[in-house]
Write a protein that binds this DNA or RNA. Structure first.
Lengths: 241, 241
DNA sequence: TGCTGGTATCTTGTCAAACAAGTTGAAAGA
DNA sequence: TCTTTCAACTTGTTTGACAAGATACCAGCA
């Protein structure tokens, strides 16, 4: 029998999902038996079961010994761009339908304070590059961002030649330090008074503040970011279960 | 050989996690081979693989054919109470360290407007129970909540005898309509002016607004809720990857 | 000595066949 | 008609086998 060249378990997982959709299975409906599905997808039962277990973990299907597998409520709740999907602020702004420009409000190398040091897992007073930026569209401010990046990540003083207007994610990618995940914290606040006054953002209104620490694939913490999203312009979706 | 009486795949999954922790495995370290682990946990290789695939989906481990399985960055980012975990507002407030009281600001049966009808999947003008509540601790307001529940869920006019001061989740549980998941939307805003004025909440400040539609296990939409969390008192964590 | 290539052996990926255990429904018996 | 029994499904688990990629080692050769 031919192998699973098509792309492993992940392909099988989405094949089953596709089957559920195409066959019009809805909540409570019974899936074909493991035997039947393993024949339909040309895989063995153990292999199929690995894929089914993934769907089970997402509460999309449910198994009942002796009876079969059934579509559960999790299948109904899917979200296009959940906040739990890691993406750069630039991509996020784009996905909200804005064509935004980026202004550099300032950047400098400074010693890390206690908060930044703790977030990045470095020592207090270790040097970090601090970048302050504002994204805006049609003259309206959208996101006020603060980013801290450990200077230790840069080679031989290359931080001087950086293009801070672009995506920091892309910049780090070229340095082989692409951030792939983060732990984040979300809250509501006003812009810090000093910031609002300095950059004429008194009309910004309530902001959705996302503080996140980004990790590269080797576990290095590469960015600590505070992004103030203008409340009247942004909202994020997610699934709770 | 004895069966997996201890609790199925989920038990096996956490056993592996526990092993990673106890053996002090960190990022990039190699896990024992499948053969070795299946012997250690007294399960067969296919069964073990089902559990390992779950960890793989969470980016906690990574498999490389011919080399082995390795701990990846996802293992480093775990969060105690992620916002993606479904829980009642009461539990959430408690977990933030508040001993809160609930005040009923009002409740009434009204026809659903377009927004509520769309969220609950019912027709406009279908009757819904609207409950308006405020949670507060030490005289300080914490969460202003609006809940809409389809009247169709109640039997023979029992909505009059309800105890709205308790958790709506618990109430629905007794009606065999326990909400188990939701799709949610988060944004930052101020309290609606009218609400602030009517209930003396002018000092509430910026609020974290979570709008969510809750589902019971049979897929019925049982609650549409708008919860305004006081910005200065709440923040939520989650993992992005 | 130093390099090359093959081989044995480790790993994960997949498959086939079998049995255990829970569920269901129909046939057999009272 | 009602009850019991049993055969046939289902998922859960095990065993054994082979394929394919990675690695270490060792013999052979220049």
């Amino acid at each position: 029998m031919e192998k699973l060249k098509t792309g492993g378990i992940e392909w099988l997982r989405s094949s089953v999902l596709e089957m559920i959709r195409d066959d019009g299975l809805t909540l409570g409906d019974k899936l074909p038996s493991e035997k039947e599905m393993s024949e339909r997808f040309h895989v063995s039962r153990p292999t199929l079961r690995e894929a089914l277990k993934l769907l089970e973990q997402d509460s999309i299907i449910e198994a009942q010994q002796g009876k079969g597998r059934f579509v559960t409520a999790g299948a109904m709740l899917t979200i296009a761009r959940p906040i739990t999907k890691f993406e750069s602020v630039s991509d996020m702004v784009r996905s909200h339908g804005y064509v935004a420009e980026t202004s550099i409000l300032g950047f400098s190398t400074i010693p890390a304070d206690a908060e930044v040091a703790a977030a990045l897992g470095i020592a207090v007073d270790d040097p970090v590059m601090r970048v302050e930026r504002l994204r805006h569209a049609n003259g309206e401010p959208l996101v006020y961002s603060l980013d801290w990046i450990p200077v230790a990540l840069f080679h031989d003083g290359q931080q001087g030649r950086m293009d801070w207007a672009g995506s920091i994610v892309e910049m780090l990618t070229e340095m082989d330090r692409r951030p792939i995940a983060s732990t984040a914290n979300i809250s509501a606040t006003m812009l810090p008074e000093l910031v609002a006054k300095l950059h004429k953002l008194e009309q910004f209104g309530p902001a959705l503040l996302i503080e996140e620490t980004c990790f590269s694939d080797d576990g290095t913490r590469v960015i600590f970011a505070k992004d103030y999203h203008r409340g009247s312009a942004f909202s994020f979706s997610f699934v709770r279960k």
